[in-house]
Design a protein around this nucleic acid. Structure first.
Lengths: 230, 230
DNA sequence: CGTATCCGGAACTGGTCAGTTTCGTATATG
DNA sequence: CATATACGAAACTGACCAGTTCCGGATACG
């Protein structure tokens, strides 16, 4: 999973207690401890952020290490000191998109399924989703050829969004708001699927009206909630 | 639209009537008519087919003109005699995917919406859709940067599939099987959207069970048709 | 203060690929 | 049969880029 520090950055600290470190036994035996200037890890997020920016603009194949280095005001050698290859850098950058995903413990809880779902499609959340989807679009071609990248995208993008919807739907079931035999898994993918297709292939805007339309016109009717209209 | 014959293949036939060709005026004035060996247009489909094969295997950026030429047993020069650039060749290849799309005049008509939709997801149709979706996946990154390619993909892939669903749903409305105020446009994109998302981002199989699940678990309930179960 | 490592910057290397040209051959027209 | 073009094959050109190395300067340890 962790693909940083491909240059070992020294075995540093202590000799790994390969087996049984008896308490009281001093660990820092003959190990020469680290030496020289230390790697500035506070730059990592800036570099990964720069990589995401470039990915969004050019896609995987269009991105070059020089672009990322220039954008991060870092040297190419610095990047290669931390990641073994372009693909490793990208996988790490994608993985760190997860950082600002919805927190499952902090989801909207309005009391109705519609209220919860609508709360998820507030404009700032839409804009962030649009940006991430755009980044992912530049990776899709690679996804079918790199299982590691595929896993990173699923973990940082697909799964968190599905999980959020899954939780909201399960809550609605527990409340008795909707039937318990609905297909939770497929329903959880409904909004992300339609948003992705619209954005990537239909070239349509991912506006609030569209997403509300999917919720009110498809998702809620599908689980038996008729819009309180007319 | 037509991007073939980028080398003019001779001005051939007649001198273009730049202005006012009065009827009766003989057109083939001094024009030397074509000369030399003629371009063998029967090879075009083979070349475009080879391009689609390579696209499916490697994606847009991984595809090289040499690969396509080798696969089509043609010379590179032959390809460049017919298309001005790699992107022109790809756009033509994508456009010719439309050839074997559903014929709107020849859609299933079983008398029920479910029957019609299920008839669309017969295994051979699924396999073809899976292949095309795989080709498209290798183009998505490019789509956001090439409006022409985007248009080709929509015309050859997105629109025909949406059109088929649109027609089936409209028929169901006309029959009185479903309400007339459903969102036909969004519903037409439902199955393609979920199929694409599952295939491209979830790495899931596009099997019949999944598609039937979308139809029975989401689409039909959404338009008010409850599965006649237990 | 010496040494090992970090840094940003820039030069270098080797491979790849779009697009062009050349060559010998095949096939049309006149 | 002379001319103009298409053909497959292969060589060539120029750009681009992943990855490496080297530089002068900064920083941490002993």
């Amino acid at each position: 999973m962790i693909r940083m520090d491909h240059t070992e950055e020294r075995a540093t600290t202590v000799s790994v207690p390969t087996r049984e470190l008896i308490p009281g036994e001093a660990a820092q035996a003959v190990v020469p401890m680290k030496l020289g200037r230390k790697r500035d890890h506070s730059r990592d997020p800036e570099i990964l952020g720069a990589a995401l920016d470039v990915l969004a603009e050019t896609g995987y194949d269009g991105m070059t290490i020089d672009m990322v280095a220039a954008r991060a005001k870092a040297g190419k050698a610095t990047l290669y000191r931390r990641w073994a290859s372009k693909s490793d850098l990208v996988i790490d950058a994608v993985a760190c998109m997860k950082r600002d995903e919805l927190d499952p413990a902090n989801l909207p809880d309005t009391g109705t399924l519609r209220g919860d779902l609508v709360a998820l499609v507030r404009p700032p959340s839409i804009a962030e989703g649009e940006r991430k989807m755009h980044i992912v679009s530049g990776l899709i071609s690679m996804i079918s050829r790199s299982p590691e990248l595929a896993e990173a995208v699923r973990g940082a993008f697909v799964e968190p969004r599905a999980a959020a919807n899954r939780i909201l739907i399960r809550r609605a079931i527990e409340r008795g708001e909707i039937r318990a035999d609905v297909d939770v898994e497929t329903l959880s993918m409904l909004v992300p699927s339609m948003a992705a297709y619209r954005l990537l292939l239909q070239h349509g805007a991912l506006d609030r009206d569209f997403l509300i339309g999917v919720i009110d016109g498809i998702l809620l009717p599908a689980v038996g909630i008729r819009p309180h209209e007319g």
